[in-house]
Every structure is written in C-alpha cells, then in structure tokens.
C-alpha cells in the first residue's frame, strides 16, 4: 500500500497535480498579499472566490461563451470587493466584521441563487457550463517528465505564475506599488506626502478582488466544470495564511501556497490507504496550523536578530562619536 503512495508521490503526475491544486490558492493569496500590504487585510477572499465561481458558471452556461463567463466572474468578484471597500473605507465599518459578513452572505447567497436557477441546492450539474481551455505547450509537452509537469494545465495555472511575477514587479519596482506599501506601513506619513490613502486602499482591495475571482473561477471552470455549494472549502483563508507564511512577499506567498497545495495533493494520494478519510482530509489544514507556528517562531528569532544588529551598530556609532 505504502509503496503505491510513495510511487504516486515521486511521479511527474503528482507534481503536476500539486501545481493544479495550488492554483486556486496562489491566485487569491496574491490578492490577499496586495490588500494586506496596503493595510486593508481582505478577509473576504473566500466569499469573493465563491461569488466569482458561481457567476462564471451561470453566465457561461447561459451565454454558452466561456470568456463571457470568466469576465462576468471577475466583475462579480470586483463588485463584492468594492462593497467591502465601501463599507470599510467610506462608511468606516470594521474591516474584519464586514469581511465576515460578506463571506456568510456569499455562502448563503450562492446556494439560494443556485436553487432558484436550477432547483438544486447542491451543485450546478444541470447547467451546461463551460471550461477554460487547457494549454499544451509545443515542444515542451513532448519531453518526458518535464512535459507532464509543465504542459497541459489550464490557463489559470499559468496565469498564477505569471501574475506572481507581475505582482512582484508592481509592488517593488513601480511607484504605485511603493505607494501601496507605504500606505500600508505608515498611512499618516504617506498622507503627509500627498498620497491618497483611501484611494490606494480601494485600488488594492479591487485588485485583490480580481485575483480572488480568478482563483474562484479556476475551481468552477477548470478544476471542475460546475459549481458546488461551499466549493471554496476555506481556500480563501488558507490563501491568507500563505500570505503571512510567505513573509508578505510575492515569491514567499507563492511558495507557501504551493506547500499547502502539496499537502492537499498528498491527502488525495493517501485516500487509497486504509486510514479514516477524515484524518487524511485534515492534513492540509493541520499543515497550515503547523506552518504558521513554525513561521511565528522564526519571526521572533529574526526580530531578536534584527534588534541585536541594530544595537551593535548603534553602540559602535556612539563610540565613534565619543572618540
């Protein structure tokens, strides 16, 4: 039995599945990163994913056009993010509470609309919704192993990696990205330099809405081609955990999201064993908790190290001044 599992893990197919399973974590995590860095933590990633996943399926089914579905999904997610931004930035509502409210509303709302449209409260299997295309990369797809790993994914998976790179450039190399980070770190200072804190955070929340929507659409229009109630299954929150575990950097977030994806894929593999499935399903979440604990311990060590370096430097300077 175990041999089977090990063989499963050390195969190109497994690696490919990790990438596939990570995609709906990477995309919302990037969104979470942007909003987090702007100082407005987006708790509503989960709800946004759910709404986008639902809208994408419904619109693609009714128009029979996959791209219209994708666009509608993105717009619906942005709209939800805009609501959150409006409540928080313009009406002064608490960000966490508004986020939770949106998540609850998204869960109930999508089930309700699903029932209205299909008469089914579980899934949209009666709707003929569309799937985004899978990309087979010429040449690479024919290389053994590498081809299996890199080729044949849906567009969202490729997008996730490309967007990580984009987000990284945006945050660190463009003035707008630097402004966003400045607003997140010291809003008062940013405002004193003429940056519009509210508008920058609005922008960040909208961007996080788009990215979370892509994650949701990946679930319902690529990973599966239907909508299921609560199909995000906490991915919006795991994505947020990936942001912190990744040290609030784009590449760190990517790696953390893939790590979670790995455990998810692992639990799929272990499904064939005679272990109670509940235990196996717990793995990705337990891994998340464990990872966060390890992360915070490391953080503390780093803070201590920074303090030490600072002290030493300061002492050296005071001494130099004294001479």
């Amino acid at each position: 039995m175990w041999e089977l599992v090990l063989k499963g893990i050390f195969s190109a197919l497994f690696v490919a599945s990790v990438l596939r399973i990570s995609t709906p974590l990477i995309l919302p995590a990037l969104g979470g990163l942007i909003s987090e860095l702007s100082g407005a933590t987006n708790i509503a990633l989960e709800g946004i994913m759910l709404v986008a996943a639902f809208t994408g399926v419904v619109i693609s089914a009714f128009t029979q056009n996959v791209w219209l579905g994708v666009i509608a999904g993105i717009l619906s997610g942005m709209l939800v993010a805009a609501f959150l931004a409006y409540f928080h930035l313009y009406l002064g509502a608490d960000l966490i509470l508004s986020g939770i409210a949106i998540n609850i509303m998204a869960t109930g709302g999508t089930i309700f609309l699903l029932y209205v449209l299909t008469g089914d409260k579980g899934s949209s299997s009666t709707l003929a919704s569309k799937a985004v295309p899978v990309i087979n990369i010429p040449l690479i797809k024919d290389i053994p192993v590498v081809g299996t790993i890199l080729s044949g994914h849906n567009i969202f998976t490729y997008l996730a990696f490309i967007l990580t790179w984009f987000v990284s450039i945006y945050l660190y190399r463009t003035p707008q990205g630097v402004h966003l980070r400045a607003v997140g770190e010291n809003p008062e200072a940013a405002a004193s330099l003429g940056l519009n804190v509210r508008r920058i955070r609005l922008g960040a929340l909208l961007m996080s809405g788009v990215l979370a929507s892509l994650g949701g659409l990946n679930l319902s229009m690529a990973y599966l081609t239907l909508f299921q109630r609560e199909m995000t299954a906490g991915r919006g929150f795991i994505a947020l955990a990936a942001v912190f575990l990744g040290g609030r950097t784009p590449w760190g977030t990517l790696i953390a999201a893939i790590l979670f994806g790995f455990f998810d894929a692992l639990s799929n593999q272990l499904g064939s064993l005679a272990i109670p499935s509940q235990w196996v399903q717990m793995i990705p979440y337990a891994a998340t908790v464990l990872a966060l604990v390890v992360y915070s311990i490391r953080q503390r060590a780093q803070a201590v190290e920074r303090a030490r370096r600072f002290q030493e430097k300061h002492l050296a300077e005071t001494r130099a001044l004294g001479d």
């Binding site: 450039i169 630097v178 980070r181 400045a182 770190e185 010291n186 200072a189 330099l193 003429g194």
Partner: peptide, 29 residues
C-alpha cells in the same frame, strides 16, 4: 519636519526621500 517622523520603516533612505515624487524610467521606479 514633524517631531514624530513621517517615514516608512521598510523602505530605504533614498526611497523615503523621493516617496510620492519618484523619478521613473519607463514607468518603473
């Protein structure tokens, strides 16, 4: 110059100096 400094701790000294009025090249900082 305010008594409590108006600065962004994680940015460099140079980035803080030009913040809000950055020199750019092809749209990049």
């Amino acid at each position: 110059v305010h008594q409590n400094f108006m600065q962004i701790p994680s940015l460099t000294v140079a980035e803080n100096v030009v913040l809000g009025k950055e020199p750019t090249r092809r749209g990049l900082l």
